[in-house]
Design a protein around this nucleic acid. Sequence first.
DNA 1: GGCCAGGACACCA
DNA 2: TGGTGTCATGGC
Length: 223
Amino acid sequence: MTRLLGTYYILLKRFGEQNWWPADSEFEVVIGAILTQSTSWKNVEKAIRNLKKKDVLNPEALYKIDVKNLSGLIRPAGYHNAKARKLKEFINYLHKNYEGNLSLMFQVPAENLRNELLSIWGIGPETADSIMLYAAGKPVFVVDAYTKRIFSRHGFVDGDIDYYGLKDFSEKNLPKDARVLNEFHALLVRLGKEHCRKTKPVCIGCPLEKQCKNKKTKISRKK
DNA sequence: GGCCAGGACACCA
DNA sequence: TGGTGTCATGGC
């Protein structure tokens, strides 16, 4: 077993299954993946509630709604004008190429699907991988700000590693199993929120405290 | 009242 | 290729 996989089991034992992605449908996962860009999930939930209330959280309605109305509904998620355009870019692509059928799109082989997603304006590496893993069920590792911070602070990778360096490292050291990759990313976000924040890291009680290399800000047990 | 959150893109050197 | 600015609301 790799050290990284061992870390996964440590987190799983401590936090339990996270049951990601919290959504009622694959389509909702895609929308959530775009809305959560650089935004806390609590704000995304409000935007999603608005979309549900107006009954537009489906491919047909989202295709028909005008971008201004859409922008107003997703306002709580921040960057609402930019995100409304992003949602429109995705839904237009889906209608143009797959008749608005997400299941049809997800039949595309993983590597091709990833390139297609990346070709859509507003969908970058992380959002593409989130959609691949949590909506399409493809076995890919999702890198985010928490992953980078946690892995560098705990000595898995250098702090200046880029997205694909981190993704390659992770996928080489973990089984190609969507269930594991799904759970691990969710556990890393949980760890990041509770113990490995950008500022004020709380190492005491962190399940990875012994491995932490964050000397500068690590909180000492000594009085 | 400041910081930052489950990023991506445009622009510039 | 890498650094910086922009997009913006809401919780803590």
